[in-house]
Amino acid sequence: MLTLRQECRIAIRIAGIRLRGQIAYPASFWMQIFSSFVIHAAEILALLAMFNRFNDMGEWTLGEVAFLHGISMTAFSIGDTIAVGLDSVPSQIREGEFDRVLIRPLSSWIQTLVSEVSLRHLGQCAQGVVILGFALSWTDIQWTLQKALFMPVIIATGVALFIALFTLVAILSFWTVNSIEVVNAFTYGGSDLAQFPLHIFDRWMRNLFLFVIPGGFTAYYPALYILGKDDPLGMTDTFRFLGPLVTAGFCLVVAWGWNQGIRHYRSTGS
């Protein structure tokens, strides 16, 4: 039986070989990287243009909004880079390609992660970091050692949550592959939602984003802590540090769901 570490090592090896295969077509490889950067430069531009027309948002300065935006975006893009293989689960199931995952001596989930490797999300990653850079220059955060140490934890929790969300989408496709566009509302929608202060949204959306999909715990509340702001929703201060715990719980549920999905897998043909 393989340990998780061994599995990860094998997965990284596989990803490396897949990447080597991509670089075999350098023109298309660089074009993808280039276009990814252009897309995200344009998005930064639109965001800055929007901020430029307004002063603040729901009692937050735009620098503070940009900070929240930056951490969510960075987490989302790292998560998306790792989980890009999960995007192809619906098509793998439709075309019967998923069979082969199940005849190999590696966790089906880890195999799915590395079934595709793409660097096109690097541009998005850069977008998150650039916006975070802007935000740090626009705000004057009172940094302490604890806050500095908590930053990587915030990003890591966000990454884990987004990977869990992409997994959730893949799980749904074990039951239905046709209405899969709904899930964009949860993944990309979730990412967009995490980029803005939670208190500007209606109550039902806030509750959804805290207690069903715990995105509020991985972005908004930790940001309140770093920025040293009061919580207009009046929740206890503990909320600011619950992210890792809540995300771990969410991941457990998703992991259980993945196994249920595998059990439900019907293959195709006779």
Binding site: A27, S28, Q32, F34, I39, R120
Partner: peptide, 10 residues
């Protein structure tokens, strides 16, 4: 071009 994905993005 062989691969349209780059162009598609832009």
């Amino acid at each position: 071009v062989l691969d349209h994905r780059g162009i598609a993005g832009i």
